[in-house]
Amino acid sequence: MDKRERLIQKLRNIAVQTPTAILEVPEKVEGFGSIKYRPEPCSVCKKCIEACEVEALDIDFTVQLPAYLDATIPEGGFRSKNRETLISLLQTLKGEGDVQAISVPTGLAGYGSVVWFTEKCIACNKCVEACPEDCLDLEKQYDLPTIIGDVVTPPSISITEWEPFIICFVCWECSHAAADLAGLMHLHYPANIRTVRVPCSGAVEPIQIMTAMENGVDGVLVTGCLLSECHYGGDDPLAGNFMQQDFVHFWQSVFEEIGLGGRLHIDFASAAMGIRFTEIVTEFVERIKKIGPSPLRGKLEVES
């Protein structure tokens, strides 16, 4: 199982409600998106399929007649002149009634279309670059409902005595120092967090967050250096914490959809901000206490 498959498997494992919305992917988040395919200018040259390293595209021996008939041929036409002529002829001849895709007879070269598999796609844009006919676009949208599918809501459990259990990823530059400083200053904050030190907040991978959730933690907190002060990139828009912020926002929207809303949070503190660190932790623990225990605890209990 490759990494993407593992991640999707974990997402399915932790989902407690069926997602319905197609999510916007924040600007700096790469690797997640949708390929939009226009069959009408496509010459079925298979360049995109050859370029795709994760086999997220394949040839389909059908002709998408509805798209052909709806197409507006741009000024200057398509690059595929024969396709353009075929489409305009079909449009001229269009009669009454509904139109459906038809299959191409076996042995007839030069016709077909391309199909895209959402869950295999890593939004690398290679197919878009390979396409000579401008049929493909990478859109910043993530089709979560298709990927997760139908979710069976786990049985709810009533826990009488419960304390939140939270994994807190701290970067080993500023935020770890801030946690240390909080200790040195003898500041008190709830004992519900377990810190995991990572080189940079940007180094936290989605699969690690999902693994934590899968194991029944009630929330995941990611902390990093102050924005614009990342030790790996500084004020570069692609610095570790800037990027992770967008990623966490993305995963927050995913969590919202799959019934884990509010259980993921990112915040920032510099090495001198011991007080801020205790505030971040306290606020998050309070929030989790309000939301209640992870619904996955019930699932885990049933499974064990």
């Binding site: 008939l69 001849l93 009634g97 139109v99 038809i102 007879p105 042995g107 007839l108 016709y111």
Partner: peptide, 20 residues
């Protein structure tokens, strides 16, 4: 001979779909 039969049957399929 074979290819022209394929082309014609394909064209007929298209015509049927578009209501011709």
């Amino acid at each position: 001979d074979h290819l022209s039969e394929l082309v014609v049957s394909f064209t007929r399929d298209m015509l049927r779909e578009i209501g011709q």
